[in-house]
Design a protein around this nucleic acid. Structure first.
Length: 426
RNA sequence: GGUGAGAUGACUGAGCGGUUUAAAGUGCUAGUCUCGAAAACUAGAGUAGGGGUAACUCUACCGCGGGUUCAAAUCCCGCUCUCACCGCCA
């Protein structure tokens, strides 16, 4: 959520900055509402002050046994008027808050304007693998190696679902073990959160109200909405909602493993077959709560951690800095790590590392107290996948495939997988 | 699922229509005293939003939302959560 003061002070500048992400907004109406609301506030607060004074007077008169009837009826009239103005002010306040809640975050100054086409590749690891034979895609490999059952996944749940079977499940679990082990070693606290969250949690993350149709709602009795989390970030951002933390307790570093549930409505494409885009996938998510002055450095740390995980697997990947429009609505700055999928000849995201700055903190009312002057300020929040498996498995299968249809297991995973090479079933 | 009790500031805890601008204690921060500390004493200290160049001042907040009243932490209704006991259950 953006700071209303920012818009009051220089609406034009905010409009300009949001244009970087191709977001058009006109604040004229909002500023009128705000002006009207503030005028109402002054008026109604003066009336309340008057009521408070008179109430004390009535109290005193009664105690002295004097007649207070006249004052009482006067206050009755004033009370009615206050109630009316209060309601008006409340309605305006609601309108203003809703308007602001729908605005995306302002891109950081160093973020390039425009859409996807302006994403900037900043580094790569390893060369693109060259194959001297005709390569298979990951769907074929996963099927012939007996790792994933796509057909039965669809039978059980419909399109966009699959099942890990046998060694495939073991490989998936090995990846998760590898991620978890690394994060624990790096001093991040492991949290297994609830998977079904409340509306409030979705609001803080920035999912709601705008993107409520992108999630699976599981319960909607009257006004309670619960939904399956689309990423563990949605849970972790709410861990400290409505809290004031101490500066010396920062940064808070967490990570979670959860499946992620996404509707992905209408986003299916032919080339995204297999497990490139599903309604449910496994992901380990890193998360940090930091002070404003340390959040940039924290973002660097998160990116490096995510890159190290992919490097550890020996996969060819690139890291890109996203242009403004490609950053999700809550984020001021985002870097993607994209792994090479040989059969598609494209890079696919396996990790997204972002700094939300104070955008989510405002939505969830999360602050910290300065050690020096005891003042409270909004905290900064950051998240990064570390990592999502649903594209790592295709990348491993395809990048490590051999001519005979077998696949070499990355060394770091062998202690869990138990074999060095995955061989086709006869 | 049932019954009962409860939710007050950093914490413990009083208040149950109008001397509450929320008692008292603990803890916290300054200061006095001290070589230093402890003790004692003095003062200060929440969050949010307005107004004012400023000193300052006003409003709201006693789990959340409504209601009654001239006036609500206090009375009424709904909700949420916590605790205890009972039932059911992996």
């Amino acid at each position: 959520m953006l700071d209303l003061n920012l818009i009051r002070e220089d609406a034009k500048a905010v409009t300009e900055k949001l244009k970087k992400r191709n977001y058009e907004v006109d604040f004229t109406e909002l500023l009128l509402w705000d002006k009207e609301r503030r005028e109402l506030l002054v008026k109604v607060e003066n009336m309340k002050a008057e009521r408070n004074r008179t109430t004390e007077e009535i109290s005193r008169l009664k105690k002295e046994g004097q007649n207070a009837e006249e004052k009482v009826s006067e206050m009755k009239r004033l009370g009615d008027e206050i109630k009316q103005l209060d309601e008006k002010e409340g309605a305006l306040d609601e309108k203003i808050k809703d308007f602001i809640a729908r605005l995306p975050n302002i891109p950081a100054d160093d973020v390039i304007a425009g859409g996807k086409e302006n994403n900037k590749m900043i580094s790569t690891y390893k060369e693109r693998p060259n194959f001297s034979f005709k390569i298979k895609d990951h769907v074929e490999l996963a099927t012939t190696l007996g790792l994933i059952d796509y057909e039965r996944g669809v039978k059980m749940a419909g399109a966009g679902f699959w099942a890990y079977i046998g060694t495939g499940a073991i490989l998936e679990w090995a990846l998760l073990n590898y991620f978890v082990e690394t994060h624990i070693k790096d001093g991040y606290e492991f949290i297994l959160p609830p998977h079904i969250l409340s509306y409030e949690s979705g609001f803080t993350a920035g999912q709601f109200p705008k993107f409520i149709d992108d999630v699976f709602k599981v319960e909607s009795e009257e006004d309670t909405v619960r939904f399956l989390l689309p990423t563990a970030e949605t849970a972790l951002i709410n861990f400290h909602r409505n809290e004031i933390l101490d500066e010396e307790d920062l940064p808070k570093k967490y990570f979670s493993y959860t499946p992620c549930y996404r509707k992905e409505a209408g986003s299916y494409r032919k080339e995204e077959r297999g497990m490139i885009r599903g309604h449910q996938f496994n992901k380990v998510e890193m998360f940090q709560y930091t002070t404003p002055e340390t959040s940039d450095a924290a973002l660097e740390e998160l990116i490096k951690k995510a890159e190290d995980l992919v490097r550890g697997l020996g996969l060819h990947f690139q890291t890109s800095k996203l242009a403004a429009e490609d950053c999700s609505a809550s984020m001021a700055k985002t870097y993607d790590i994209e792994v090479w999928i040989p059969s598609m000849e494209i890079y696919k995201e396996v990790s997204s590392s972002s700094n939300a700055k104070d955008y989510q903190a405002r939505r969830g009312n999360m602050k910290f107290r300065r050690k020096t002057d005891k003042k409270v300020e909004y905290i900064h929040t950051l998240n990064a996948s570390g990592l999502a498996t649903s594209r790592i498995i295709p990348a491993i299968l395809e990048q490590y495939q051999q001519e005979d249809g077998s696949v070499i297991v990355p060394e770091v995973l062998r202690k869990w997988v138990g074999v060095d090479v995955l061989k086709p079933k006869k």
